[in-house]
């Protein structure tokens, strides 16, 4: 027992050190900065400055709107894609090719992919050229510098995460449960809603949480696709650190973003748990 505990401690030591050095300490520094003045005195005024100002609430609303919409769209698009990969594709090599195609963009930097979208969504980009050519629009639609443009970029970058987690959950669903439901007279839709979807809920939740947390903290994609005309909280915090050099106010913005994100993720997992319990209770 003693030896195994010691081994466990040794095994944990390295990740624990890395976690402390590269996550806890920097986060602690940001947290302390957010609670102090430039002279090092304790103050809550930075939070007052952030939370008592309508402008910041407007930025928080834009940030959360983009993150929530990205999550919903990624799940709505990711579920059928995962279904196609797991349930429909019979040919193994094709499935493998599809998974590679899905994962491959993740090997490219966010900056490159966002620049790609800038070329596609621009005033004279491929999308506008195609729409103009087809006679669907008279003048180019403005995508860059709008929330729509940022949303397109975020969904493209984050979609693989939902497909992978939902696909994994779908593959684990016992086919006999669905067969039993059909045998008992339920149609395909009822079977999906009452059996398949609830059984894949943990995959949907996991994918949703990954997408949401990445979208809410995204900096590169919003910064490039906003053209400086839409502001999200991560951009505002970065600006304070990189150009205004107000680390205290920047720290308060960062901690506010973190707190709101954790709260929302907490609420959503709590609601899912309650939902599952109620289902079980029924």
């Amino acid at each position: 027992m003693f030896t195994s505990r010691l081994t466990l401690l040794w095994l944990l030591a390295l990740p624990l050190c890395v976690f402390t050095a590269f996550f806890l300490i920097p986060l602690g520094v940001v947290f302390v900065a957010s609670l102090t003045t430039q002279d090092g005195q304790f103050t809550l005024s930075q939070y007052g400055r952030v939370l008592l100002d309508g402008y910041h609430w407007q930025v928080i609303a834009v940030t959360f709107r983009l993150a929530i919409l990205s999550t919903i769209i990624c799940i709505v698009l990711g579920y059928p894609l995962a279904w196609y990969l797991v349930r429909i594709v019979k040919w193994r090599s094709w499935r493998r090719a599809c998974v590679i195609m899905l994962i491959l963009p993740l090997f490219t930097s966010n900056i490159v992919r966002s620049f790609g979208w800038m070329v596609l969504l621009g005033r004279t980009g491929l999308v506008n050229d195609a729409l103009l050519g087809a006679g669907l629009i008279e003048r180019p639609i403005r995508f860059l510098g709008t929330e729509t443009g940022i949303l397109i970029g975020l969904v493209y970058i984050l979609l693989p995460f939902t497909v992978l987690t939902i696909g994994n959950a779908l593959a684990r669903v016992e086919p006999s449960l669905e067969h039993a439901s059909r045998d008992l007279g339920a149609g395909p839709l009822r079977t999906f809603c009452s059996i398949t979807f609830p059984l894949t809920m943990h995959g949907v939740m996991a994918g949703g949480i990954i997408v949401f947390s990445m979208a809410i903290s995204a900096y590169v994609t919003p910064a490039l696709l906003s053209g400086g005309k839409v502001t999200v909280l991560a951009m505002l915090a970065f600006q304070q650190y990189s150009t205004v050099f107000d680390f205290n106010y920047g720290g308060a913005l960062s901690i506010t973003l973190l707190t709101f994100t954790m709260a929302l993720i907490g609420i959503s997992s709590w609601m899912t748990r309650i939902g599952v319990h109620e289902k079980k209770g029924n």
């Binding site: 620049f115 800038m118 005033r123 860059l144 510098g145 005309k229």
Partner: peptide, 14 residues
Amino acid sequence: DTGLLYDTSGAASN
């Protein structure tokens, strides 16, 4: 009526 408020010189060139 701007099309771009750029952060980096590279973004402007692009």
